[in-house]
Write a protein that binds this DNA or RNA. Structure first.
Lengths: 228, 228
DNA sequence: TCACAGATTTAGCGTCAACTAATTACTGGA
DNA sequence: TCCAGTAATTAGTTGACGCTAAATCTGTGA
């Protein structure tokens, strides 16, 4: 009844919860209350309360003490928000001079306010891009997302050359640093040497040798040569 | 204490109230509770309650049963919102293919979400325009607004030629109609004939003779030749 | 198998901002 | 001057969504 045909508008909070839950439950695994609370920087009881409301609205399934999973409707709403977010990021970088470390915050607020029409106009103005400035795939308006098999740079054996596809670091400082050494989506990187025990990794990128820490290397998702 | 130096962020509702009160109290006259309620489509008691909160926050002065007036701080906040709104409108029309009848609604929601930085980037991208697509002046970031003496087309005597400066119609249908007959800011119009008792007015615009109703003519604010 | 730590939920409360119903203040005309 | 009608305010409720404190469940190690 509540969610008859069209989606009566969701609140800002609900949109944030759905997005968080989507990204916390890969492959149909359930997201826990505390994971959600941590991600959204809220208390666990607040999340528990919202979960109740959302499951009553049919946006997710809740197994008490076990976790939640989005319903088809919840997933659709989450993907809509992710599409908005990523198109906004792409537009801000391409047309308004934003750098990739600064767009997230702006998009985070705009994604709740823009109309679907504006999002589509922005997408069109950019030629319907399929990834945002961090290389994250942009879901289609119909809710389809490209799934590409990537490997963290941290797991690439020495000697291999790969393409950086996605940069999952969120922290602006890290992003600025990565940008400054040319580690961006689309760039080719050769792993020269790997220190054991999660030690630093020596790579060649854009003719330069660089040593980067294991943690940063975890956030660089790469495309390996499939023909190998 | 509450509004020490910087403005701790105002809520969406508060921003809407301030904007409404600003536009309802020209020249330091007070805005009444019912005017505000009508403008924002809220009940009078809701407005009464908000007025109490806003005056406690120092954003307006309230004389019970008489009305409200913005304080300097309230006016500053209102002008900031108006600047945002108008820059958004200008940008959407100039860069994203919006028509002037469709921008208001979009800007209305975005104005609460964009950062000051994004607004300034948009303004810069447009070369710091001084008016929005309806000819409404854009306040500066410092809160200064150009005041131009205009006269409604409805009050221009027959025989006079004037420039349309601002179009204050808000209704998309009216705006579309006006656009279709070329009645936009910057256009020159000659009044050919005026029927008495708020009757229709015959004008020449862009080589065409048109007859428009009194009400529409009220919404076309024109610049008269000062040298006359 | 049982107890306890940690995760989760329930209970109860606060704030914001809307509402309706009831009351009170102002004002213009007889 | 008084009174009716309109405008404004007060009183009390609601819903969303946070919070803390308390209770309860789950799974693991002794």
């Amino acid at each position: 009844m509540s969610a008859a045909l069209g989606h009566e508008p969701l609140t800002r909070s609900v949109e944030d919860y759905l997005k968080a839950i989507y990204s916390l439950s890969p492959e149909g695994r359930a997201a826990s209350t505390s994971d959600i609370a941590h991600r959204l920087e809220l208390s666990a009881p607040s999340v528990s309360g919202m979960i109740k409301r959302l499951s009553e609205q049919g946006l997710l399934e809740h197994v008490p003490y076990k976790g939640v999973q989005l319903t088809a409707e919840g997933r659709r709403a989450a993907l809509r928000m992710i599409r908005r977010h990523r198109i906004l990021e792409a537009y801000l970088v391409a047309r308004l001079g934003y750098t990739w470390d600064a767009v997230h915050e702006e998009a985070e607020r705009l994604e709740h306010a823009v109309s679907d029409g504006l999002i589509e106009r922005m997408a069109e103005a950019l030629g319907n891009p399929d990834a945002d400035p961090h290389g994250e795939p942009i879901p289609t308006a119909e809710g389809w997302v490209e799934e590409v098999l990537t490997t963290p740079l941290a797991d690439i054996p020495a000697g291999e050359t790969v393409e950086v596809r996605r940069v999952t670091a969120g922290d602006p400082d890290r992003l600025r640093y990565l940008g400054s050494v040319g580690l961006q989506p689309g760039v080719m990187v050769t792993v020269l040497e790997r220190q054991p025990f999660s030690g630093p990794i020596t790579i060649r990128v854009a003719e330069h040798e660089r040593v980067i820490g294991h943690e940063l290397a975890e956030s660089l998702l790469c495309l390996r040569d499939q023909s190998a």
